[in-house]
Computed example of a mutant assay.
Amino acid sequence: MKLISDQYLITYLQRFDQYPFEVKLHGKTHLIGEGNPVFTVSMKEEIDSSKLLSSTSLALGEAYMKGNLDIEGDLFQALDHFMGQMAAFTADQKKLKTLFFTSLSKKNQEREVASHYDIGNDFYSLWLDDTMSYSCGYFKTENDTLYEAQCNKVERILKKLCLKKDMTLLDIGCGWGYLLIRAAEEYGVKGVGITLSAEQKKEFERRIEVLGLSDRITVELMDYRDLPKSGRTFDRVVSVGMVEHVGRENYDLFIKSTESVLKPGGLFLLHFISALREYPGDPWMKKYIFPGGMVPSLREMIKLLSDHKFYVLDVESLRRHYYKTLRHWDQNFNENRDQIEKKMGTEFVRMWDLYLNACAATFHNGIIDLHQILISKGINNELPLTRWY
C-alpha cells in the first residue's frame, strides 16, 4: 500500500478551496481556502495514494465509513462544499470499469436490487414515513411534514394520470405499494404492482390484506422484461424511481416493454433521478449503495420515448423537493441511529449517513435532478386542455 505524505494530501485537497475548511493531520492543522473555516476534516490514518488517484469519492468515502476520516461540524455542509466542486474529483475510468459496468442479466439485477431494498422492512420503517415511500416527496409548503410531502407526491402523480373508476394501472417498481393503495381507494382503479424485492412484496401483500383491497390490487415478483409476454394491457402505467436500476444499455428495452402493455392513447408517468449529461455515476455510490445503478439524462430519456412514438405531455423538475426529502430522511435516520447501529454496526451507520447527506448535497448543487415526465402512447385528445387538471 502506497501511503501519501502530509504535504501531498494537503496539496491534493487544495483543489477544493472554493470555501475555507481545515484539515487536521498528525497533530497539525492546515487551512484550505481563505477565511474562517466552516468545518474541519480530521484525518486519523493515512490514505492509500493509488486509491485517492483512482477515485476521490471511493478513497474519502471508505475512509469516512471506517472512521479514519471524520468531520468536525455539519456533515451535510462539508459534503455540500465538496459536491459543489465535483469537477475537481478524480476518477480513473479504466480502473473503475468493472464497478461502473456490471452485468445486466436478470439474475444479477435481481441480486443488485435485493442488496439495497431487502435490507429489511424494519430498517426502512425506522426512517421513512408511514407511507413507506422511498422516493422524492412533494412539499406544497416549507412546513409540510415528510408524511404530508409523500402524500402530496402520490396525489400529484395520480392527478397527472387522469384516472377514472375501474381503469387498470400498472406500477413498475411498486415499492411498498402506497401509490397503488391510494389509486384503488381514491379513484377505484384496479392495480398491479411488480417488484424484484421480496421484502417489499411481503409488506405490500400484508397491507393489501389489512385494507381489504385484494379484489383491487395484486403484486408480483417480476422483471420488467417479462411484461411483453404477460399478455396484459393497462390504461395507465407509472414507474417511480425504478428506471435508474435497468442500466443505460437497457433504457430502450425498458420503454419498449412498457409500450407493449400500455393501451393506445394510454398515459405513462415516469418519475426518475436525472442528469444533464450521460455519465457512468459515482464509484462509491455504485460500490456500496446502488450496485448497477445508472442515472439517465433527461435528454436521452425524451429521445428514446420519441423513438417509440410516445408523446411528451408534461415535464416537471422536483430537484429541490428531493433535497428536502433527503434532509428529512437523514434527520429520522439519526434520531434512530443508536437502534440502527446496534443491529447493523458502526460502519453501516456511517455509510448510510454519508449516503443520505451526499445525495442531498448532489441535488442541492444540481449535479443530479428529479424529473416527472407524463407521456401518452400515440395521440390522446381526450385529456383536459389545461395542465392543472
Score class of each variant (00 low, 15 high):
1 M>I: 09
8 Y>T: 12
8 Y>E: 13
10 I>L: 06
10 I>S: 00
12 Y>R: 08
19 Y>S: 12
23 V>A: 01
25 L>P: 01
26 H>G: 09
33 G>R: 00
35 G>D: 11
36 N>D: 13
49 S>V: 14
53 L>W: 09
54 S>M: 13
54 S>N: 15
58 L>V: 09
60 L>T: 05
68 N>F: 09
73 G>F: 08
77 Q>F: 12
78 A>W: 07
88 A>R: 06
89 F>A: 02
94 K>E: 15
95 K>L: 13
107 K>Y: 10
111 R>P: 03
117 Y>R: 04
119 I>H: 08
122 D>K: 15
122 D>A: 14
127 W>S: 00
135 S>T: 14
139 F>D: 02
141 T>H: 10
142 E>I: 07
142 E>L: 07
154 V>D: 00
162 C>V: 11
162 C>S: 14
163 L>I: 05
163 L>W: 01
176 W>V: 01
177 G>V: 02
184 A>T: 01
191 G>F: 04
194 I>P: 01
195 T>G: 04
198 A>N: 11
202 K>W: 07
204 F>Q: 00
204 F>L: 09
208 I>F: 12
211 L>H: 10
215 D>R: 10
218 T>R: 11
219 V>H: 03
221 L>C: 11
223 D>T: 04
225 R>H: 07
235 D>I: 03
235 D>F: 02
246 V>H: 03
250 N>T: 07
253 L>N: 13
262 L>Q: 10
265 G>I: 07
270 L>C: 12
272 F>N: 09
278 E>H: 13
279 Y>V: 09
280 P>S: 01
280 P>Y: 00
288 Y>S: 01
290 F>Q: 05
294 M>A: 13
314 D>C: 07
316 E>T: 14
317 S>A: 14
318 L>V: 05
318 L>K: 03
330 D>S: 12
333 F>A: 04
342 K>H: 08
342 K>W: 05
344 M>H: 08
350 R>V: 01
351 M>A: 06
356 L>P: 00
358 A>M: 12
363 F>E: 03
364 H>W: 09
365 N>I: 04
367 I>P: 04
369 D>W: 08
370 L>P: 00
373 I>L: 12
377 K>P: 00
381 N>E: 12
387 R>M: 09
388 W>M: 13
